[in-house]
């Protein structure tokens, strides 16, 4: 039987290992500067405000709103052919930084409230956002 193509996996990185270890447990970690507390995403070596190389990590709630989105109708990697069409969302997390993830729901609208969670796909934690009812 021919093997189906698998999704690309994140390259191993000392800098972001805490992010992926937490993601495997279903937690969204955002890096922060241990010196001045400025949050940043994606993980970096230095704080661009105070240049400290000391990092801390904060658990994000996964709550946010839609900043933008696209729907993939053409697969640029064979592992995604079976999932077409799929929606990718860019989310403003309530903590400040943004996250990119897959969408589960009807066509999103900008500023729509969302909730994120991790699901494992081909061994990699995938960030999935769904509509969040507010109020």
């Amino acid at each position: 039987m021919t093997e189906l193509p698998t999704k690309p996996t994140p390259p191993d990185s000392d800098l972001s290992r805490p992010y992926w270890e937490a993601a495997a447990k279903g937690e969204l970690l955002i890096q922060g500067c241990a010196s001045c507390n400025t949050l940043r995403h994606y993980p970096r070596l230095l704080c661009d405000q105070c240049y400290s190389d000391e990092a801390s990590w904060a658990v994000a709630s996964g709550r946010g709103t839609i900043h933008s989105w696209t729907v993939a109708h053409h697969a640029f990697h064979p592992a995604f052919i079976a999932e077409l069409p799929y929606t990718i969302v860019t989310v403003d997390l309530e903590e400040g930084p943004r996250a990119l993830g897959r969408w589960s729901g009807e066509t999103p609208t900008i500023e729509q409230p969302v909730q994120g969670r991790f699901e494992v796909s081909d061994g990699t934690p995938e960030l999935i956002f769904v509509p969040r009812i507010v109020g």
Partner: peptide, 21 residues
Amino acid sequence: TEFEHPMGNNAPAQIYAPMAR
């Protein structure tokens, strides 16, 4: 490559489309 490619954000058309939206 690390945070988005594994979820299907693979090529410029997909990566730039949210800017246009």
